[in-house]
Design a protein around this nucleic acid. Structure first.
Length: 103
DNA sequence: GCGGTGACGGTCG
DNA sequence: CCGACCGCCACCG
């Protein structure tokens, strides 16, 4: 239980529905500037029964990492269910859905 | 304690 | 706009 992990989870929970944030964004909010990788590790350590909307966390390219699907449900489906639209390239318009963290 | 790897980011071409 | 390279730092063997 690294405290840093808890910070990351808290930052992800701060992301409102219908919005997506990049690893760097989450890392910065979590208090780990530049540690985008640790964010990825923390999310990967999550379980299916997690209350953390890890699906809202994507890379700077606006695409889903790890691959097209994970566990059985594609992350893309979850985001689309939240109202996030994907383009033909499987990318999210951070310009519109990108979380400003200003709230 | 060392080495390799990685749900990444930013810059260059 | 997209692709490729390097760099950062934590986690695992």
């Amino acid at each position: 239980m690294s405290d840093s992990y808890d910070r990351i989870y808290a930052a992800v929970r701060r992301v409102p529905k219908g919005c997506v944030a990049t690893y760097g964004q989450i890392a910065a909010v979590a208090g780990l500037p530049g540690h985008a990788r640790q964010v990825g590790y923390a999310l990967h350590a999550l379980k299916s029964s997690t209350s953390v909307p890890w699906q809202r966390v994507i890379n700077a390219k606006g695409m889903i990492s790890l691959g097209p699907m994970r566990g059985g449900v594609s992350q893309r489906l979850l985001l689309e269910n939240e109202g996030v639209k994907f383009d033909v390239a499987g990318r999210v318009s951070l310009r519109k859905f990108g979380w400003t963290k200003k709230r």
